[in-house]
């Protein structure tokens, strides 16, 4: 019988210390231990991207990582993006561009888009499509998702146009 291991992980700005079995996947830890059900499991085979979270600021598939590997590190989920009830420009862009239908892929799409915009704040349409190649959407046909990422990068979301902090805030989203 494998021993359980104590881990300390910072998730969405809160530090947690827990005993976990080494085989516990990060996505199960987030959903079942911490109740962070905003992170979804779509395929469980590293293909769909629904489980995407940030590990120390870069995107990873949390179904393909053990919770013990996150010991001492910082995890950001979709639930950690909004501040004081205020959506980030990228989240607003998904809302305004109608970038979702059923919404199942959306948390992963937004987390991967945020990672993409950090690495490349002004991507071309082609770069957005390639940047989202590990995220599957069964509803939208991707068109409006690409438009939303473009709008967030351009700082042209409507509720954002009154302020001047669109693109830079998006880029610093994680």
């Amino acid at each position: 019988m494998a021993r359980s291991t104590t881990i300390t992980v910072e998730v969405d700005d809160v530090s947690y210390t827990d005993d976990v079995e080494p085989r516990l996947l990060l996505v199960q830890y987030l959903r079942e231990r911490l109740g962070k059900t905003g992170t979804l499991i779509g395929c469980d085979t590293t293909n769909c991207g629904a489980c995407t979270v940030h590990l120390d600021g870069t995107s990873v598939k949390s179904c393909t990582m053990f919770a013990v590997q996150a010991d001492g590190r910082r995890v950001t989920t979709i639930e950690g993006l909004a501040r004081d009830g205020k959506l980030t420009p990228l989240q607003r862009a998904f809302h305004e561009c109608h970038a979702l239908q059923c919404g199942f892929c959306t948390p992963g799409m937004i987390m991967q888009s945020a990672s993409l915009l950090q690495e490349n704040p002004h991507p071309s349409e082609q770069e957005i499509r390639e940047g989202l190649e590990g995220n599957l959407c069964r509803c939208t046909g991707y068109q409006n998702i690409v438009a939303a990422v473009q709008a967030a990068a351009d700082g042209t979301t409507t509720s954002d146009s009154a302020t001047e902090n669109g693109a830079s805030e998006t880029a610093g989203v994680a």
Partner: peptide
Amino acid sequence: VADPQVRHR
């Protein structure tokens, strides 16, 4: 290789 998330890990 694969996709950005897989390339990060």
